[in-house]
Amino acid sequence: MLTTETRTHRVVLRAALVAAAAAVLLVVVAALGAGSSAALGAAVGGVIAVGVFAFGSFAVELVSRLMPTASLLFAMLTYTFQVVAMALVFVALNESGLLDDELDSTWVGIAIILGAFVWMTVQIVLATTARIPAFEPRPAAPVEGGAR
Score class of each variant (00 low, 15 high):
Val108Tyr: 05
Ala116His: 09
Pro133Leu: 03
Phe74Thr: 09
Met120Leu: 15
Gly41Glu: 01
Met120Asp: 06
Gly109Trp: 01
Val44Ala: 12
Tyr79Pro: 04
Asp104Thr: 11
Gly146Cys: 04
Gly46Cys: 00
Thr121Arg: 04
Trp107Asn: 07
Leu126Phe: 00
Val24Trp: 06
Ser96Trp: 01
Ile112Val: 14
Gln123Lys: 10
Glu136Arg: 10
Val91Leu: 14
Leu25Tyr: 01
Ile132Glu: 02
Ser37Met: 11
Ala54Lys: 02
Phe58Met: 10
Thr129Ile: 09
Gly146Glu: 03
Arg14His: 14
Glu136Asp: 12
Leu73Val: 15
Pro137Thr: 03
Ala116Asn: 06
Val29Pro: 07
Pro137Leu: 07
Ile113Val: 15
Leu13Met: 12
Leu26Ser: 01
Val44Lys: 05
Leu72Ser: 14
Ala141Gly: 03
Ala20Lys: 00
Ile132Lys: 06
Ala31Asn: 05
Ser36Asp: 13
Leu77Ala: 11
Leu72Lys: 11
Gly41Ala: 03
Val83Glu: 04
Thr3His: 06
Val122Tyr: 01
Gly45Tyr: 04
Gly115His: 07
Trp107Thr: 06
Thr128Asn: 13
Phe58Trp: 13
Ala16Pro: 02
Ala42Lys: 07
Leu73Met: 14
Thr78Met: 09
Phe117His: 14
Tyr79Met: 13
Ala134Phe: 14
Val11Thr: 06
Gly115Trp: 00
Ala16Gln: 03
Phe135Thr: 11
Glu5His: 15
Ile110Lys: 09
Phe53Asn: 15
